[in-house]
């Protein structure tokens, strides 16, 4: 959905997974920006109707970028910096018990 600008400064690359898929991102980016840069469109399905949603505002306001990060569900991906080895997963609807252990 997004791509890097051609002459952007290269940063250190961090490895992470999204739904088990190994990906890399730029150190300094947020989780949401890293997903966008990797062409990910939807990050969650809503708890009300189950339709897919994608990040909308990127500034912490809309809560549409909610995602599971390292086993903890419903985190605002646009406010969390990417870290090496992060396990990122689609937020499927309501918060699940396995997303609560942390």
């Amino acid at each position: 959905m997004f791509r890097s600008m051609r002459d952007a400064k290269a940063g250190a690359r961090l490895s992470f997974t999204f739904d088990g898929r190994p990906l890399t991102g730029r150190e300094g980016d947020t989780v949401t920006a890293s997903l966008l840069a990797n062409g990910v469109t939807a990050c969650r399905e809503t708890p009300v109707s189950g339709v897919p949603r994608a990040p909308y505002c990127l500034m912490g306001v809309c809560f549409d970028c909610l995602i599971v990060i390292d086993g903890i569900g419903n985190r605002q991906g646009c406010l969390v910096p990417l870290r090496e080895g992060m396990r990122i997963e689609t937020q499927h609807g309501r918060r699940q018990p396995e997303e609560m252990r942390g």
Partner: peptide
């Protein structure tokens, strides 16, 4: 998915140097 605010695209540009 695919619809965002203009501000979001600007934030993506400024903070991560990514464009649609």
């Amino acid at each position: 998915p695919g619809v965002m605010t203009a501000g979001a695209a600007q934030i993506a540009l400024k903070s991560a140097a990514i464009v649609p």
